[in-house]
Simulated assay, not measured.
Amino acid sequence: MSTEGMSTVTSTPSAPIHVPSVAALADAVGQRATGEWFTIEQARIDAFADATEDHQWIHLDAERAASGPFGTTIAHGFLTLSLLPRLASSLVEVGGVAMAMNYGLDRVRFLNPVTAGSRVRATTELTGAETVAQGVRLSSTVTIEIEGVDKPALVAQTLALYVPEA
Score class of each variant (00 low, 15 high):
Ala98Glu: 15
Asp54Thr: 10
Val29Asp: 00
Glu4Ile: 11
Glu125Cys: 05
Thr124Arg: 09
Ala166Met: 02
Asn102Cys: 03
Thr123Val: 14
Val120His: 04
Thr12His: 13
Ala160Cys: 13
Thr72Gly: 15
Val163Met: 14
Asn112Ser: 15
Leu91Arg: 01
Tyr103Thr: 04
Glu93Met: 10
Lys151Ala: 07
Glu145Asp: 15
Leu84Glu: 06
Gly30Val: 11
Val94Asp: 06
Thr124Tyr: 00
Pro152Lys: 01
Ile58Trp: 06
Ile74Gly: 09
Pro20Val: 05
Asp106Leu: 04
Gly96Gln: 10
Glu93Ile: 14
Thr127Glu: 08
Ala47Pro: 04
Glu4Tyr: 02
Leu111Tyr: 12
Ala26Phe: 08
Pro152His: 00
Glu41Val: 14
Thr124Leu: 07
Val136Phe: 02
Thr158Lys: 00
Ser118Cys: 12
Val163Trp: 06
Gln56Leu: 02
Asp150Leu: 12
Gly95Cys: 04
Ala129Trp: 07
Ala51Phe: 03
Gln157His: 14
Leu87Gln: 08
Asp27His: 05
Pro16Glu: 13
Ala51Met: 10
Ala62Asn: 00
Thr127Asn: 03
Ile45Trp: 05
Glu53Cys: 01
Val108Met: 04
Pro152Gly: 00
Thr3Gln: 14
Pro69Ser: 14
Ser140Trp: 00
Asp50Arg: 12
Arg64Ser: 11
Leu105Tyr: 12
Thr143Tyr: 10
Ala160Glu: 14
Ala75Pro: 01
Thr80Gly: 06
Val142Lys: 02
Ala156Met: 08
Val163Leu: 07
Glu147Ser: 08
Phe48Ala: 06
Ala133Trp: 00
Ile58Thr: 05
Gly5Ile: 12
Glu130Pro: 06
Thr127His: 03
Arg109Lys: 14
Arg121Tyr: 13
Ile40Thr: 04
His59Glu: 11
Leu83Asp: 07
Thr131Met: 03
Ala43Phe: 09
Asp46Val: 13
Asp27Gly: 02
Gln31Ser: 13
Phe70Asp: 05
Ser89Met: 14
Val120Met: 08
Leu84Val: 12
Asp106Lys: 10
Tyr162Asn: 01
Val92Tyr: 03
Phe110Ala: 01
Thr123Tyr: 02
Leu84Phe: 09
Gln31His: 11
His55Tyr: 11
Val92Leu: 13
Leu91Phe: 03
Thr3Glu: 14
Arg137Asn: 09
Thr34Lys: 02
Val163Ile: 15
Trp37Glu: 02
Ala153Pro: 11
Ala51Trp: 09
Asp54Tyr: 10
Gln42Glu: 06
Val132Thr: 13
Met1Lys: 07
Thr52Val: 11
Val9Phe: 08
Val92Ala: 01
Gln31Lys: 12
Thr72Ser: 15
Ser90Thr: 14
Pro152Ile: 01
Val9Tyr: 04
Gln134Glu: 15
Leu91Glu: 00
Asp54Met: 10
Ala66Gln: 06
Gly77Thr: 13
Ala65Lys: 04
Ala160Pro: 04
